[in-house]
Every structure is written in C-alpha cells, then in structure tokens.
C-alpha cells in the first residue's frame, strides 16, 4: 500500500501535493496495491472530493483549528498513527519545506528508511529504489531501503500531475485530534504570503532569473514584466542577491533554492558552478549574456550572445504580440 501525505495551504491543495497524489496512484498500480491519502489542516474536509479524484482508495482526514498551520510534532504524530494502522510499503510527500521537515520526523518515529528530494524510483520485485541527486546535483545516488515503510519526498516539478479525474469511491476516515501538552508549547502565531501573485519559485513551470548583468535593482522591473507575460517566477543569482537587488528568498543556487522548471531563463547570469547547482536539472535552459564565453552557455539549450538591455525589451514586445494573437 502507498500512503500519500497531502498538503494544503489556504484551503487549496499545493501543487507538490498533487504531484505526490498522482505519483502515489501510479506507484500503487505498479505495485498492485492500494493508494491511501492523509490530509491534515483546518477546513480540509472540503478537499476530500478533489483528493479522491486522484484515485485514492481511502482518505484519512484530521481537521482541527489547532492544525491550521503546520505543526511538526502534531502532524508527525497523526501520520505515525495512520502508518501504524495501515502498514504502508511506501509513504510519499511532495518536497515542500513542510514535507522536508515532517517526513524525517515520521521516518525516525516509526522506523523506516528515508530518501528526500527523489527525482525517480525503481521497483525491483519487492524492493523500492529511490533515485536522488546529492552534493548539490553533482552526483546521482540510488538509495535502497532496508527498513520499510520507505519514506520518499518527491522533488517538485519532476513528477507529473494527473489531469484526468479518476472516479473511485474513497473510504473516508476521520481522525479525532487533541493536542498534547508539549504540542501546545509550539504554535504558529502568524503566516504571511510574500509573493506578488507570481508562482512560487520551486513550483513554477517557468523561471526568469537575473544576475549581475542587470546592473541595478530597478532593472528587475523588466524581468518581472517578462515573467508575468510567461506566467513565470522571478529568480536571481547570488550576485544579484548579495548586491541587495533581490531578496534572499529569490536566490537560485547552492545557498539558495533548487529549481527544476520546464524552462529556466538565465538573464545576465554568468553561470558560476554554485548557480548551476540550483538549476541545471531544468528541462530547458535559455541564456542571454553579453560574454560569449560565459559558462552558462555550456548548459544552455538556447543561448543569445548580446546586450540584455536591447534583447529583453524586444522579447517583451514580441511576447505581447503573441499574447494578443492568441
């Protein structure tokens, strides 16, 4: 049996959760097993139908005001109880900050092997083998499990979301929840969303990133315009962040975020090894740089050698025309 931990925020399933649900069903089919989901939060009962549509045979739901925000101890306890009841072969979750905080807790609590940031897996008879990058993507590791359940956290944007609704009648199991004394000692006081309506960097299909070549914070307005035309997130190189042009949360690379979008546009980014560590698993890379020898061109599927200040405005105008046409 495959157990999927679904994650919601502000009343909606998060994209990595949809990916995990989709992959959970596919994996269960390969194993000839059932797929079960668990969802925790406040008001998450409204999501049961949607979760069911991913072909979940059973759904556990813990719905409580105390669980409105992520609570490491409480969430871990609830999931561990479900694991104890269901004895799954695999537990899947999307690779959000929550997923990467929560799954290690559950893994050590129930005593199963843990493999985060999975970009693939193999099923070998009775065994699951997780495939994941390590050392900042410089090496790919195959991880075997000696203790099951196998806890796997999936890298966002790698596993596809199943767009077809699978009609099954899911059994719903409500979990009654009361926080323990020690759980009451940790609470989220507030939660604030900081993005300006753009997709989250790690979840975006398209990322438009700027670097030292942008020369000034104000010039990022141009990149934002481009990003909005493409429905993209805006990223930045370390140079742009260190210069104070962009917040640290926008940084892509070794000390920033790792992204795997369908399209990554590196604009005015030379492509230092630390930057490549954060984006080289993107499906397509486009680079615009005035230096023909910039290392970014070694990984770019499409490179333009030239002045970004001349090229990007033309690209923006061209995309506007494209949009008007469609």
């Amino acid at each position: 049996m495959v157990l999927v931990v679904a994650e919601a925020r502000e009343g909606a399933l998060r994209k990595p959760a949809k990916e995990a649900l989709s992959e959970g069903r596919r994996m269960a089919d390969k194993l000839g097993a059932k797929a079960v989901a668990v969802i925790i939060g406040e008001g998450v009962k409204t999501l049961l139908k949607e979760i069911s549509g991913y072909g979940m045979d059973k759904i556990y739901v813990a719905d409580s005001a105390f669980l409105k925000y992520y609570h490491p101890m409480a969430y871990a306890r609830i999931i561990s109880e479900v694991v104890a009841k269901e004895s799954p072969k695999v537990v899947l979750m999307g690779g959000t900050q929550t997923g990467r905080d929560l799954m290690p807790r559950v893994a050590i609590r129930v005593g199963g092997g843990y493999a985060p940031d999975c970009t693939g897996y193999e099923i070998n008879g009775d065994s699951i083998i997780a495939v994941r990058p390590a050392i900042s993507g410089k090496v790919i590791v195959k991880v075997g499990f000696k203790k099951y359940p196998a806890f796997m956290v999936l890298r966002p944007n790698v596993f596809g979301v199943n767009e077809d609704i699978i009609s099954v009648s899911s059994e719903v199991v409500e979990i009654s929840f009361e926080p323990t004394e020690v759980e009451r000692k940790q609470i989220v006081k507030e939660f604030s969303i900081k993005t300006a309506g753009r997709p989250e960097l790690t979840e975006a299909e398209i990322v438009v990133s700027g670097g030292r070549g942008l020369k000034d914070a104000a010039n990022f307005a141009m990149l934002e315009e481009l990003a909005d035309l493409l429905g993209a997130a805006v990223g930045a190189s370390r140079a742009a962040v260190d210069a104070g042009w962009r917040p640290q949360s926008d940084q892509v690379g070794q000390t920033g975020k790792t992204v795997s979008p369908k399209l990554y546009m590196a604009i005015g980014i030379s492509g230092a090894i630390q930057h490549l560590a954060g984006m080289s698993s993107s499906k397509y890379i486009v680079a615009i740089n005035k230096d023909p020898d910039a290392p970014i061109f070694n990984v770019a599927d499409f490179g333009i050698v030239g002045d970004l200040f001349k090229i990007v405005p033309v690209l923006i105008e061209r995309l506007k025309k494209e949009k008007a046409r469609s």
């Binding site: 410089k138 195959k142 023909p292």
Partner: peptide
C-alpha cells in the same frame, strides 16, 4: 535503514544553439 547502492554522474548537459545578431532577429 537505507543504503547507497550506487553513485552515478548526472548526464552532462550539452551546449545547445548559440546565436548572435540584431535583437529582432535573435528574439
């Protein structure tokens, strides 16, 4: 509880097309 079965190097990305020229044309 887990063991590393093998390490491999990720597939090397190949440099693709690189163009240079007038903005309108490269866009």
């Amino acid at each position: 509880f887990t063991e590393v079965l093998e390490y491999t190097l990720p597939p090397q990305r190949q440099a693709g097309k690189k163009v240079e020229g007038e903005p309108e044309q490269v866009v």
